[in-house]
Simulated assay, not measured.
Amino acid sequence: MTISGRTKVLLLAAVGFVLVVVYAPLAVVLVSSFNAESTFGWPPSSFTTKWWESTWHNEGAMEAVRTSAEVGLMATAVALVLGTLAAFALTRYEFFGRESISLLVILPIALPGIVTGLALNSAFTTFLGVGLSVWTVVLAHSTFCIVVVFNNVSARLRQLGGNVEEASMDLGASRWTTFRLLIFPLLRGGLLAGGLLAFALSFDEIIVTRFTADADTMTLPLWILNNLFRPNQTPVINVVGSVLIIASIIPIYLSQKLSGTSTGGRM
């Protein structure tokens, strides 16, 4: 299809506008983290790195980072196991209700976070009668992290097809041997991509976390929200936001390189 010169200019202008709208606010946060003033001002009158040094020694921020990392790793581990099992069951086997179950697996990523958080809060506190803790946060995050792993593994399994497994078992290999020596090595890229995206999704989740965490569980997004309007905390929050922006690029880039495609999520 041939595109006229005027259409190309309009398309480039539209793409440029979208990129500016998306990335200009991120650039403002990065530049503001070096603002010498303790209050937000634009443009910055002078620049300094002292806020980066003070953030490094901020115990509240560092503890929130550790909590977010622990929750993210545990939720990712649960998602890798359950998401992979669900992908195998729904991709390799035909049974009644398969499409309905597939919809139920994917649904948590499509639901608004506030709906998921409210439902899980009611389930934990009212139906099950358990207190909120870091473990309820892990379980809550696992519900939507599973979807990311499920999508990556399902896509990879569909690419592989079933002929390789059938040939392996025809030659005398058991299902476990086939999975361990043949299927798992072929799935490692998809598993790693799904795990990276699941961790990134869990690390910056705030709405579901707010409904399922107790007062002692402070993840980094909750810490940022609680300190957003406190005096003299703006520079520290800008630094934390800058670190998150830089750190988020790594798992997204690696997951795309490993999976060969982009996977959507509630980011």
Rank of each mutant, 00 (worst) to 15 (best):
S33N: 01
G117S: 06
V105F: 00
M74D: 08
T55K: 06
N121I: 04
L104D: 09
L107K: 08
L132M: 04
W56L: 14
V71W: 00
V134C: 11
E63G: 12
F88W: 11
S142E: 02
S33T: 07
L128P: 05
E70G: 07
G41M: 13
T116G: 00
S46A: 15
L85R: 08
L85S: 13
V65Q: 01
E70N: 07
F144H: 05
S100F: 10
T39N: 10
L12N: 13
E99I: 04
G97S: 03
T125F: 02
V147W: 00
V31K: 00
T84P: 00
E37F: 03
S46K: 04
E99H: 04
A24T: 12
V71M: 02
F95Q: 03
S133L: 08
V134F: 06
A61W: 07
L139H: 03
P108N: 10
V130D: 06
L104T: 13
T39S: 14
T125N: 03
F88E: 15
L132K: 09
T116Q: 02
R92W: 03
L90T: 14
S33P: 05
V78H: 04
F47M: 03
S122L: 15
E70F: 13
V137I: 02
G72H: 05
A69W: 07
K50C: 01
A69R: 05
W135G: 08
V65H: 02
V20A: 15
T48K: 00
F95N: 07
L107S: 11
L90M: 08
S32A: 14
G83L: 00
I146L: 10
S38I: 14
F96A: 14
L10Y: 14
A140T: 06
F144Y: 14
V21H: 02
W56K: 11
A69T: 13
L30R: 01
G16Q: 12
I114R: 01
L85W: 07
A27K: 05
T126I: 13
A77H: 08
A14D: 08
E99C: 01
K50A: 11
V130H: 03
G72F: 06
I106Q: 09
W135A: 04
L85C: 15
V115S: 01
H141W: 10
V105K: 00
N35V: 07
F88S: 09
L132A: 06
A36H: 07
G83I: 04
A119P: 05
T116K: 02
V31E: 06
G113E: 09
E99D: 10
I146E: 01
G131R: 10
A86T: 04
V20P: 01
L104C: 00
G83A: 03
A13M: 12
S68V: 08
G41F: 02
T136W: 00
L26D: 12
V15K: 02
A69C: 05
L128R: 04
A13V: 13
W42E: 10
F17I: 15
N58D: 15
V21C: 13
P25Q: 05
C145I: 07
E94L: 06
E63N: 13
